[in-house]
Design a protein around this nucleic acid. Structure first.
Lengths: 162, 162
DNA sequence: CTATTTCCTAGTAAGTTGGTATGAAATATA
DNA sequence: TATATTTCATACCAACTTACTAGGAAATAG
């Protein structure tokens, strides 16, 4: 089954929000969380993965926040998946440890290989800049319009967080 | 993340084994499990899903077993995934209940749609007959060669079953 | 009648997902 | 230097999913 996790969904949305900026002045996670109506704590969690993958860089303290560390034109959806979920495609007979004993003889092994290839191709082709250019409006604005004026309530669904 | 579950892996392999036959005389699960070195009980479990999806038909008793109920040339990988795992692609903002409030405004919604489309296209294009035709040898034979003479031990890895 | 085989309903241990909680470290501003 | 603010780091937890296993009922060929 293919599932786009909330980590990737929220992470991607937040990266788009970062890409809205001038790329120099850091954006605080607090404001992204508020504007996008996502849990601040969860976003923090997610951004630690992005920092480790050197996709964003954070600076602490007041006036701190995150900036993109990579060019949106070369930052692919694949990179983001990798940073946030680890391996994009898994099937038993492909990982080292439990490598299946059938090897080349197995009729389906090639099939999973093709499937993985097709998936990777798709994900590597789309960059952050591509997606962004399809939408005239800044992400944050679009979301704010949907939710009306940003109020006190945050977090998604019933859960209050920040 | 995309994971090919063992249900699909084993199920697909077993279907290939079924397709090796003449399509008329039922194949017992016991022999498939033995030849492919898979857990009989788990295969039974898997085949109940295939029966419900009308992909195979079972007849009980001695000389019983399973036959394909659909033409291998029109039975796609997609059908098999659906039968064994349910939905192939999931993302929060696509399912009814938790439909996201951003709707058309959300910049990534279209993206997940394209991803799903590309995945479905791949899975719908490959049929059981396609895969089978790429391999001259019957699946079961190939496996038996790998494992040597079929012995008493069954199940995958350390687990003994049947 | 009996052995064999599928059918049906449950249960369960391990792993993954979607978060939360708590506090330490850095830094701009006063 | 003190303080408020922000990221960084570690760890925890409940709900769900995956990969099976268990036990027996129903059908059927001989």
């Amino acid at each position: 089954m293919f599932n786009v996790s909330t980590r990737v969904q929220y992470g991607f949305l937040a990266l788009l929000a970062l890409a809205d900026g001038d790329g120099k002045t850091p954006v605080r996670l607090g404001s992204i969380a508020r504007d996008l109506h996502l849990s601040f704590k969860y976003l923090e969690n997610i951004f630690q993965s992005l920092v480790k993958a050197r996709i964003v860089r954070g600076t602490r303290g007041p006036e701190g926040g995150y900036v993109l560390e990579r060019d949106p034109r070369s930052l692919s959806l694949y990179d983001i998946f990798r940073a946030l979920e680890g391996p994009v495609f898994t099937v038993e007979c492909f990982d080292e440890e439990s490598a299946c004993r059938h090897l080349a003889l197995c009729p389906v092994r090639d099939l999973w290989g093709e499937l993985r290839g097709s998936l990777e191709k798709f994900l590597k082709r789309r960059t952050l800049a591509d997606i962004k250019s399809k939408y005239k409006k800044p992400v944050v604005l679009a979301h704010m319009e949907m939710f009306g004026v940003a109020g006190e309530e945050t977090g998604k669904k019933e859960s209050a967080s920040i």
